[in-house]
């Protein structure tokens, strides 16, 4: 095989391979849908004592083509649920409440993770221990009310939902 032939083979094999590698390396883009674009994934919660608090984490993604917003949150587990954000200020970690509605643009996500944004369940009706499950109802301006059930775990051993 002469040099020109080797170059031809390299191009024929190499270009598709490069294209395949590029496709694998590219970040996953959400598929946008005209309606009903909200998707809630990876939800889990932390243990909490009855009458006290628990936090819930996960990701809410707007796969739709229109802006949507989280307008209400409720759960049989707690009478009071808010979206909170942890910020560092004046040498202290401070909690800041995010007022509803929380807007989520098309293709964007509300990512909730330990040490950052979280759903705070306050005045728990009963204690939540590792392995328990709870239900949240999340209402969106366009996508309507969605129910999500998830497990109580911890950061090092998150339950898969």
């Amino acid at each position: 095989m002469n040099y020109r032939n080797r170059q031809g083979w390299s191009l024929r094999l190499g270009l598709p391979l490069l294209a395949l590698l590029a496709a694998c390396a590219a970040p996953e883009q959400p598929q946008l849908h005209p309606t009903g674009g909200i998707r809630i994934t990876g939800m889990w919660g932390t243990p909490g004592i009855a009458g006290r608090v628990s936090a819930a984490y996960g990701t809410i993604t707007n796969h739709g083509t229109e802006p949507d917003s989280l307008v209400a949150i409720s759960s049989p587990a707690a009478p009071l649920i808010e979206v909170h954000q942890m910020v560092e200020q004046d040498g202290m970690l401070r909690m800041r409440g995010m007022k509803l509605p929380v807007a989520i643009a098309p293709g964007d996500s509300l990512a909730m993770a330990p040490g950052g944004t979280h759903l705070m369940l306050m005045e728990l009706h009963q204690s939540l221990k590792l392995g328990d499950s709870i239900t949240l109802h999340l209402s969106f301006a366009h996508a309507g009310k969605q129910e999500v059930r998830f497990q109580i775990g911890n950061e090092q051993n998150r339950p898969q939902n």
Partner: peptide
Amino acid sequence: THCPDVCIV
């Protein structure tokens, strides 16, 4: 024990 996030982390 009312700490929802930081102390748990």
